[in-house]
Amino acid sequence: MISWRAIAAILLVTGPALLAGEIPPDARRSGYAFMGPDTRAMQDDDTANPGMLFVLDGEQLWKKTTGAADKACADCHGDARSSMKGIAARYPAFDKALGRPVTLDQRINLCRADHQQATPLPYESRDLLALSAFVGHQSRGIPITAGDDPQVKPFVDQGRALFMQREGQLNLACTNCHDDNFGKRLAGAPITQGQPTGYPLYRLEWQTLGSIERRLRSCMTGVRAQAYDYGSPELVALQLYLMSRARGLPMETPAVRP
């Protein structure tokens, strides 16, 4: 007979590691695993992946001087292949001056304001997407570690609460699809785990590259909720939680999705 003490010990060991509804690390799968062979082939071939067009544009922007300071990204950061390697895998990251986490898009605009004295690039503009795709591409294959910094813990928790929060006229939370029903289909499309491994990514439906914030806002509109604004603390927290939830999965930027 198993003693109650033994059962209690097992519960103590497994309990805190795995919160209800969450996907264990070895069962985490990128959206890539849910795609058809044609879309996978498109992502895998760098001369067929339309996201690479934005990476090429980003490479040009990296070297181009801009703003009143007449400086290029490369003037401070040098060769992105070494200086930006692994950076996107740990974003959103804590900014000490602001006392909150910032996304890669926000970091690019902070750099523009502080060091280049240039105007911020609008969210989803071609130049911002190109720069973040170029920076993100340098982390391709590197496992995600965002959210490991203890300073961002409260923001990860906020993001998790938002992920679990039912909202909109359809009264659905992110978790209802992406934890509880991944692998099934919503209309014709497979439901993925919502692992943000390849942002900014090329969505065939959009016919362009898009950020994770665009994706999150589409989901919110889908459940008939009022979407948070680009750059809002809620979207940053959600993005941070999603990245921490994808811990260990390799980056794919720029990914292709249907």
Binding site: T47, A48, M52, L53, D57
Partner: peptide, 8 residues
């Protein structure tokens, strides 16, 4: 504009 060409 950026273009990607694949020729052996």
């Amino acid at each position: 504009m950026a273009a990607l060409i694949n020729v052996p």
